[in-house]
């Protein structure tokens, strides 16, 4: 229970246009005040429970994404915010875009919209909370995502 009352989130900007990012930050500011759910935005993955990803994945950010995902301790939940993170969105055809976040790491909840409203993002986080609680009960672990050796050291 304690985990779901005070989850810490890490926000990862993968390849986004900033639209979704500023809405994620707006959730934490006084008007929407996601902190009333006990959420705390935190800079380091090692202390986070929920990973909020905005933007699609490109060939350079893919290893950053994997690296951060692997560092988050279990149980962990991944929330894809925005059309880009869910499917690649308007940019899915671009040559440097691999696609949605779920092509790389397992995603537990999606928030649609370009960009989603803060209300929708908070809704997504609340949905993520129950998933987190279930994972904890079932002792479900996230799979380690393989990194491609060398690139990791130089990129992330």
């Amino acid at each position: 229970m304690s985990l779901a009352k005070s989850p810490w989130i890490i926000h990862v900007n993968c390849n986004s246009c900033n639209g979704c990012d500023i809405e994620v930050v707006a959730c934490l500011t006084p008007l929407y005040d996601a902190e009333r759910f006990g959420l705390l935005n935190i800079g380091t993955p090692k202390q986070a429970d929920i990973m909020v990803v905005t933007g699609s994945v490109n060939y350079k950010s893919v290893n950053v994404l994997k690296n951060i995902y692997n560092q988050i301790p279990d149980p962990k939940v991944v929330l894809a915010v925005g059309a880009c993170a869910s499917t690649g969105g308007i940019f899915h055809d671009c040559y440097n875009v691999i696609g949605g976040v779920d092509q790389i790491i397992p995603v537990d909840a999606y928030v649609p919209g370009c960009c989603p409203k803060p209300e929708a993002i908070i809704d997504g986080v609340v949905a993520a909370l129950s998933i987190l609680e279930n994972k904890k009960k079932g002792n479900i672990r996230g799979k380690e995502v393989k990194l491609k050796g060398k690139e990791v050291a130089s990129n992330a």
């Binding site: 390849n15 986004s16 490109n58 950010s61 950053v64 940019f91 055809d93 671009c94 040559y95 440097n96």
Partner: peptide, 22 residues
């Protein structure tokens, strides 16, 4: 390069009205 999507190439496939949304 972490946020490079390749939009200047992408507009090849879009007409000039759609490009505005990009």
């Amino acid at each position: 390069g972490y946020v490079h999507r390749g939009l200047e190439k992408f507009i090849d496939t879009k007409d000039y009205n759609q490009t505005l949304y990009i």
